[in-house]
Design a protein around this nucleic acid. Structure first.
Length: 302
DNA sequence: CAATTGTGGCTCCTTACGTCA
DNA sequence: TATGACGTAAGGAGCCACAAT
């Protein structure tokens, strides 16, 4: 009996995308829901592999279609100074990297945004406000205090749209090169650091789930082996009992006490399975008793 | 050409916060 | 309303690969 105990190739595991090369382009992401290239893709100057615009969350689509199809709460909310300050606070932990590669891309204080969909306005408001209006109402002042103190770590909750967008990207490639990271950050109006962290955490979650699946698989293997061991122990007892009750077999080499491959039972008697010649052979080989039986059956002198 | 150094990305572990039952 | 469990964004340490010196 052979058991495959490979951690590396568990075909049942639902993470096939992990094996995809990270340099693959994003074919799916180039398409809209209708399967047509998005407007942004048509006009984008980015290299094909890093085009991340599209999907239901494409800012172009949002800007071209009414929000009735894809409700975007933050697009309908007023954009006042308070909200901008909230964004600044949220982005505080990621400022170090923005300083050199992404600050200008997603700066909420920028009066002219190149992106029709301003994710920045939702970082705190849309998501929280949508679920808990009361909490949202008190958010601005509290955040402002923390912002001035600069001592409290603020935590950003990505919107469902942003998370879904990142998920789609993750399905295509679990790691990002700098260009892809920047493009995605630009697309979602997040800092590159936030995108990077999201992918890191996402990989960690995937690995954790994979570990759980592997653990479950090994657990089942262990149970199977335990059962097999129990069965073999039982058969060993049968063998020993047979050895005690039938001293005739004690004269034979140990190899003559074999197990029938067809029925997986100890060969105390010739197997009746006429279709398994090998089993019959095993049962009769080197057996004086068997030779006698053969001689009698076929009239062959022994 | 080998050693050193700086940089960026990764994993792993942890913390802090938001949400929900 | 308070609370604990859970999910997750983010910080930090350590490691590695790679390019520049």
């Amino acid at each position: 009996m052979e058991l495959a105990l490979s951690l590396g190739d568990t075909p049942k595991l639902p993470f096939s995308f992990l094996d995809k090369p990270t340099k693959d382009p994003l074919p799916n992401l180039f398409l809209t829901q209708q399967g047509k290239p998005s407007e942004l893709e048509k006009t984008s100057s980015l290299d094909p592999p890093i085009q991340l615009d599209l999907l239901p969350f494409s800012p172009v689509l949002r800007s071209h279609h009414s929000s009735s199809h894809l409700p975007i709460p933050w697009l309908t909310q007023p954009c006042g100074p308070v909200r901008e300050r909230e964004l600044d606070v949220n982005r505080f932990p990621a400022m170090t990297e923005e300083a050199d590669d992404g600050a200008s891309l997603s700066s909420p204080s920028s009066s002219v945004s190149p992106f029709p969909m301003d994710f920045s306005m939702r970082n705190n408001n849309a998501e929280y406000g949508g679920r808990n209006k009361r909490e949202n109402e008190g958010e601005a002042e509290r955040v402002s205090d923390d912002d001035e103190n600069g001592s409290t770590r603020k935590k950003l909750r990505l919107s469902k749209d942003q998370s879904a967008f990142l998920e789609e990207s993750f399905k295509e490639h679990t790691t990002l090169n700098p260009k892809q990271k920047l493009a995605l950050a630009k697309q979602l109006n997040l800092s590159p650091r936030q995108v990077e962290v999201w992918f890191q955490n996402r990989r960690a979650r995937t690995k954790l789930k994979q570990t759980e699946v592997d653990c479950e698989y090994l657990k089942r293997c262990c149970e199977t082996l335990t059962e097999e061991n129990r069965r073999l122990q039982k058969e060993l007892q049968e063998l020993r009992a047979l050895k005690t009750n039938q001293p005739f077999y004690m004269q034979l080499p140990a190899t003559t006490l074999t197990m029938c491959p067809s029925c997986e039972r100890v060969a105390t008697n010739p197997c009746n399975n006429q279709t398994n010649n090998k089993a019959k052979t095993l049962h009769f080989t080197n057996s004086q008793q068997a030779q006698q039986q053969k001689a009698q059956a076929h009239q062959i002198p022994s």
